[in-house]
Design a protein around this nucleic acid. Structure first.
Length: 724
DNA sequence: TTCTGAAGCTCCGGGATATC
DNA sequence: GATATCCCGGAGCTTCAGAA
């Protein structure tokens, strides 16, 4: 029985064992698979979480970048708005508060709104003296369509409206209106008859010094009676040009192809000359190069094939080394104007939007384009200054963009260069002078560009060329930014001029006017430049109303609310040219952060005898009795001039900015890192640097903080002394 | 509605001319 | 010859007219 049982159970046991082993093996495999799956799932989950975190971090970075860029743009906008306000409104308001001194002349709008009193100006100019002695016959009335913002009248006192002989011609214009004789009908001058100038009436004074009416004096135009032959205006000449351009058979409805028969870009080609409209392509391309420079045609000889820049051997030192910053600043200005006019009528807004679009198109071209505009043709034909104008450069960028999107078998740059070669050849054949800027500015109507657009089905857009108004154009509303912001660079700063009046001699330092001390003995610095002398007294000694007028301008500027105008610790007056620092590091030294210190902008000529004009000067405030401003003396040097700087590197999320120096400055002190007191100050500094044409480059806070940490400089004592 | 180029207006820089 | 004044031409800005 046992044997049977044994013999009978043996196979089952073996199978059971096998089964059990298999089950165990399967179980182990399942466990291993489960563990492996769980591990993979966990690592996958970790990866997903990391990806989510990374995306969130990236989003935060994007948001931070957008926020900082918006802040930077807002800072730029604030800067230009405040600059405009300072140069227009506040100065005149300040002048009007001085009731003890006025000429008796009052200015009104046509609706009778009082705009302001006219203050006297004392200069050496005899015309001013004569006008101040004349009896005031009437108040001055400004045209209905003139902007009646009282601040606009402020321009009559501004430096830029004073001739080299000291004649304040706009102030003179207003005084002529108040004291002269009204001319009516045919006696009225041609410009007044056409509604030019700010004043309602044509008024002149008898006598040799007064050969113009108030309106012509205001706008520096020749003044001749309307009954005489009026001087040809630019618009009249433009009209003639249009007529010739349209041809003798043109009627009032301009055909679309009117402009295609004449070379508008090289104006005076003989009528009827056949225009060669052979398409430009690889088959007839005239450009040749040896891999390094172009060798043919003549207008391209010597031009490098590679993209050039300010550091390239081909670069001409006369060229604008940072065209991109120039365009960037202009674009930022337009963005600021666009934001300011968002509430305005659509046409005004779109005009500003267009300028922003143009600026961005140019920046893209300058940034990503395969060539620099200054290597478009050989130096012999290059007019870099005029080519760099906002409209002309845009036309070049836009033409290249149009060509790039429409299937050429050559590059757009080759196409344009070949076309310029043709234009140059035709111009020289006709005995005329080639004008690159004009050719580019009018490229939209170049016959071959027009033919190209036609061939590609690109319609001509914008107002048709040759349109002529049915009636003489009425006088348009004046632009609103009357004084300085529209086109001109700001007048030489009144702040700086004060220092020029210090009589040379001892009035050396720029901070003198707003930070005048009493010239007490030097208690701390070692060099002759170390303590600022009492230039305020010298300024007063220079005397004269002109000086006082300039002082008013300066005081008005000090009221700029876009920056902190009083030092927190010292209570001293700051200007928009002061940039508060916590500390500065150079290769050798670092300033003591317990000291109140600034980078102060010094304009050319501000310091008599200075060999380094246009620089950021490091100034410190000494808390002695009385408190004094001063400079550290050699070998300690935290100043830098425009010519010293290769670029300014900044980043969001850090108050520090790196001033990368080249040339002698690099050898002297190397790069410098400024740690600004406030974010607003840093942004103001950056905008100011861009305005001065410096290259401003964005980096990361990490890199800048690392640069700061790596700069192992010796920290100076509070008085700038080098500790043993 | 938005965008574009043309045209017109104004201002400014600088060369030409006049005056001392 | 130096200085002052005149005025032309270039350029920036605004508005117009038409296309997308």
């Amino acid at each position: 029985m046992q044997a049977d049982a044994d013999s009978g159970s043996l196979p089952r046991t073996y199978l059971d064992v096998v089964r059990i082993l298999r089950e165990e093996e399967e179980h182990e495999l399942e466990e291993a698979l489960r563990a492996q799956t769980e591990s993979i799932r966990l690592s996958l989950r970790a990866l997903v979480e990391r990806r989510i975190e990374a995306e969130a971090a990236l989003n935060r970075v994007h948001v931070a970048i957008a926020t900082r860029e918006a802040q930077l743009e807002k800072a730029a906008k604030d800067y230009y708005q405040r600059k405009q306000e300072i140069s227009s409104g506040s100065l005149f308001a300040a002048a009007n508060t001085d009731s003890d001194m006025h000429t008796g002349v009052q200015v009104y709008s046509t609706t009778g709104v009082f705009m302001g009193d006219v203050m006297p100006i004392e200069t050496e100019n005899p015309v001013v003296e004569i006008l101040l002695d004349l009896p005031v016959l009437r108040s001055v009335t400004v045209r209905r369509d003139w902007n009646h913002d009282p601040g606009r009248l402020n321009s009559i006192y501004q430096e830029r409206n004073i001739t080299g002989s000291g004649k304040p011609f706009r102030w003179v214009a207003v005084m002529i209106q108040a004291t002269g004789e009204v001319l009516n009908g045919g006696d009225c001058c041609g410009n007044c008859a056409r509604g030019m100038g700010p004043f309602e009436e044509c008024i002149m004074l008898p006598g040799d010094p007064f050969r113009k009416c108030g309106n012509c004096e205001w706008s520096k135009r020749p003044c001749s009676p309307s009954s005489h032959q009026p001087p040809p205006s630019s618009s009249a000449k433009a009209g003639l040009a249009v007529e010739r351009f349209r041809g003798p058979s043109a009627d009032d409805s301009v055909a679309e192809h009117d402009y295609s028969g004449g070379d508008f870009s090289i104006d005076d080609r003989a009528e009827g000359s056949p225009v060669d409209l052979e398409p430009i392509g690889a088959a007839n391309l005239s450009l040749r190069h040896n891999g390094k420079v172009y060798t043919h045609p003549a207008c391209m000889e010597g031009v490098p094939v590679e993209k050039i820049g300010p550091g390239h051997p081909y670069w001409d030192p006369e060229w604008d080394p940072d065209l991109m910053s120039t365009i960037r600043v202009q674009t930022l200005e337009w963005k600021a104007k666009l934001e300011a006019s968002l509430h305005n009528t659509s046409s005004v807004r779109f005009a500003k939007q267009r300028q922003v679009n143009r600026g961005e198109a140019m920046l893209e071209f300058l940034n990503k384009g395969p060539i620099h505009p200054f290597q478009l043709v050989a130096k012999k034909y290059m007019d870099a200054r005029r080519l760099a104008s906002f409209d002309t450069l845009f036309r070049l960028a836009e033409t290249l963009r149009t060509l790039s999107n429409n299937g050429l078998d050559i590059t757009p740059e080759e196409w344009v260069r070949h076309r310029l070669h043709e234009i140059i050849t035709e111009t020289q054949r006709d005995g005329q002078t080639f004008d690159l800027a004009k050719a580019i500015a009018n490229f939209y109507h170049d016959p071959k560009v027009v033919a190209f657009r036609d061939a590609k089905g690109i319609k001509t857009i914008g107002r048709p060329a040759g349109y002529k108004m049915a009636v003489p154009p009425r006088r348009k509303k004046q632009k609103t930014d009357f004084d300085t912001s529209a086109t001109g660079s700001p007048a030489p700063g009144a702040y700086n001029n004060n220092n020029n009046n210090a009589g040379g001699g001892g009035g050396y330092h720029t901070a003198s006017f707003v930070r005048a001390d009493d010239g007490s003995p030097d208690a701390w610095a070692q060099g002759s430049q170390a303590i600022l002398p009492a230039a305020a007294a010298a300024t007063a000694a220079a005397g004269g109303e002109l000086v006082r007028r300039r002082k008013r301008q300066t005081d008005a500027e000090l009221g700029y609310e876009g920056f902190t105008d009083t030092d927190e610790k010292m209570g001293d007056r700051m200007t928009k040219h002061d940039f508060a620092l916590r500390s500065v590091k150079s290769r050798a030294y670092a300033t003591n952060s317990t000291v109140t210190q600034y980078w102060h902008w010094v304009e050319q000529g501000e310091e008599a005898g200075s060999s380094s004009d246009r620089l950021f000067q490091h100034q410190v405030f000494l808390p002695c009795e009385p408190p004094q401003w001063g400079l550290y003396s050699a070998p300690v040097d935290f100043h830098f001039g425009l010519q010293d700087v290769k670029e300014i590197v900044w980043a969001s999320d850090t108050l520090k900015a790196v001033v990368r120096c080249g040339g002698a400055a690099a050898e002297l002190h190397g790069d410098m890192i400024g740690d600004f007191a406030r974010e607003r100050t840093k942004r103001r500094f950056l905008v100011f640097c861009m305005k001065k044409g410096l290259r401003v480059v964005k980096s990361t806070a990490f890199e800048i903080e690392m640069a700061w940490e790596m700069m192992n400089s010796q920290v100076l004592g509070p008085l700038g002394q080098v500790e043993a």
